[in-house]
Write a protein that binds this DNA or RNA. Structure first.
Length: 496
RNA sequence: GGGCCGUUAGCUCAGAUGGUAGAGCACCUGACUUUUAAUCAGGGUGUCGUGGGUUCGAGCCCCGCACGGCCCA
């Protein structure tokens, strides 16, 4: 990167050289603080006695942080420094610092300094570190975004998230909350006896979901590999292996478009609980989400994109067949084959090809007619078998499986079923998917994983499984409308 | 993939009808020992995303491209 022609960088480089000429190391290896800024202020406030003129009424503290503002008053300078905990104003006075006061001239907004002194209050009551000495901890040579208007340019915010974090405090809040959500999920599941595991990201068969995979290659094995699109089949292998309750919070990769609620890599929670069914999982999901909301926001309601959404259990549970009938007028059972359903959908004006497979059609009908209406948390239950090859058939509803998807704010946030554990039917379902894929050239259909079938053949207990998109959950809980504001480095096209 | 909008100083933005590129903050020079979006005086620091075209003349008009955003598929 060239910067010799940039005057703002130039003036900082000149200051840097001045410091070096004076024998000052602008990048010292270490610095000992007495505490973070928040702790120091907290301690000062709680011990404060009404004697602001006496600087020795508190212990000396040593604080450090990034310079966020400099207000120069001639022989006094006010410098705001910020660490992760808090911001504090530091007052440096010429008669206190003596000859080192001049060095302050070489500081800029964005530099890191450490300062030692007593905490006091100014005339206006501002808590201030009255600095006796200071140390330059890092001289920055590139200017920061302006403090008042912040950094707004979305492209810069996402590509250079560090600038976004420095300039926009609410972004720090968002990602702090994201971290709390992840912790909260782990506490919730661990508390219920689940064990966290890690399964392969590089896989020979990209199975367990309807999605196009990313392809890669292992040189020394001379083998094409894929980035996983789900963790399902490995986690169920672990249920076969005897773990009763497992979960994984991991990145999965789907080779699809990017929009407000899709990022090509995203964080997926999958959990599998032996001797549970999809009803148990529904109960778990609504408890988990509402408890997280309370943990993050102190209440179970959110305001998302203008909607007031109440996450308090129980959530509505509506059958897929009924909802599609109510919203689109289509009774799926009247159109049992691909062609008749294609024709029906076309007659409603849906933009589809001459012949589409039934699973894909139902998915489109669902997205177009049902999902946008599901603002309050809703479980849509009992999906057609043809679009759910890994789910157990419903004992009463022929052609349907025990599956649900959870929707909030029109977004799918979870997918779950009573896991299919009949190895003969499981093989048949996979073969069916393979046939449909070949017939329709639909690259997104699920794939047959032979080793997974071997595991099923050994026997898996009845199991309730769950997949939950964590980025979308974060979007809801931090009330952000774009997935890019819930992922700290969202995917962006490379710059040429 | 299609449509619309955007890209101007480090940041946030303004630039009717085509006629020497502007503001606030930041930055530079000076004043100021309790300021706090400090203040006061002075200074504009630019490949107007990019490549073509039209024109005496393009930030502005036309075409292509890149990147971003929104909507649609």
């Amino acid at each position: 990167m060239q910067y010799h022609d940039n005057s703002l960088i130039n003036s900082r480089l000149i200051k840097l050289n001045k410091l070096l000429e004076l024998g000052i190391d602008p990048y010292p290896a270490r610095f000992k603080r007495s505490s973070d800024i928040y702790t120091a202020i907290d301690k000062f406030s709680s011990n404060e006695i009404d004697d602001s003129e006496n600087l020795n009424n508190t212990d000396k503290v040593t604080l450090a942080g990034r310079i966020m503002a400099i207000r120069s008053m001639g022989k006094a300078k006010f410098i705001d420094i910020r660490d992760f905990s808090e911001t504090i104003q530091v007052l440096f006075r010429a008669n206190v610092l003596e000859e080192t006061f001049g060095l302050l001239e070489h500081l800029d907004i964005g530099d890191f300094i450490g300062a030692t002194g007593h905490i006091m209050r100014t005339r206006t009551g501002q808590i201030t570190l009255h600095g006796d000495e200071f140390t330059i901890l890092c001289k920055g040579i590139r200017p920061l975004p302006e403090k008042f208007h912040g950094l707004k340019d979305t492209e810069t915010r996402y590509r250079q998230r560090y600038l976004d974090l420095i300039a926009n405090e609410d972004v720090i809040k968002t990602f702090t909350n994201r971290s709390k959500i992840l912790n909260g999920i782990r506490e919730f599941l661990n508390g219920r006896g689940f064990m966290e595991v890690e399964t392969p990201v590089l896989v020979a068969t990209p199975a367990g979901a309807h999605a196009k995979p990313f392809v890669t290659f292992h040189n020394s094995l001379d083998e094409t590999l894929y980035l996983r699109i789900a963790t399902e089949l490995y986690l169920k292998r672990l249920i076969v292996g005897g773990f009763d309750k497992v979960y994984e919070i991991g990145r999965v990769f789907r080779n699809e478009g990017i929009d407000q609620d899709h990022n090509p890599e995203f964080t997926l929670l999958e959990s599998y609980e032996s001797y549970a069914d999809y009803n148990d999982v529904m109960n778990m999901v609504e408890s988990l989400v509402s408890e997280l909301a309370i943990k993050i926001n102190g209440k179970a309601t959110i305001n998302w994109d203008g909607h007031d959404i109440d996450l308090t259990p129980p959530w509505k549970r509506l059958s897929l067949k009924e909802e599609i009938l109510n919203r689109s007028g289509i009774d799926l059972d009247d159109y049992p084959d691909d062609l008749s359903l294609t024709n029906k959908a076309k007659s409603l004006g849906m933009d589809i090809g001459d012949l589409e497979n039934r699973g894909r059609l139902i998915d489109k009908i669902l997205s177009q007619y049902v999902e946008p209406n599901l603002i309050q948390p809703t479980f849509i239950i009992d999906y057609p078998e043809i679009m759910s090859p890994l789910a157990k058939s419903h004992p009463q509803k022929v052609g349907y499986v025990e599956r649900f998807e959870a929707f909030i704010a029109g977004m799918e946030i979870a997918n779950s079923y009573s896991e299919l554990n009949d190895p003969v039917i499981q093989r048949k379902r996979f073969e069916e998917q393979e046939e449909i894929r070949e017939m329709y050239g639909d690259e997104e259909l699920d794939r047959l994983d032979e080793d997974f079938l071997v595991a099923m053949e050994l026997g898996m207990p009845p199991t309730g499984g769950l997949g939950m998109g964590i980025d979308r959950l974060v979007m809801l809980l931090v009330e952000q409308v774009s997935i890019r504001d819930a992922i700290i480095f969202p995917h962006m096209r490379s710059q040429k």
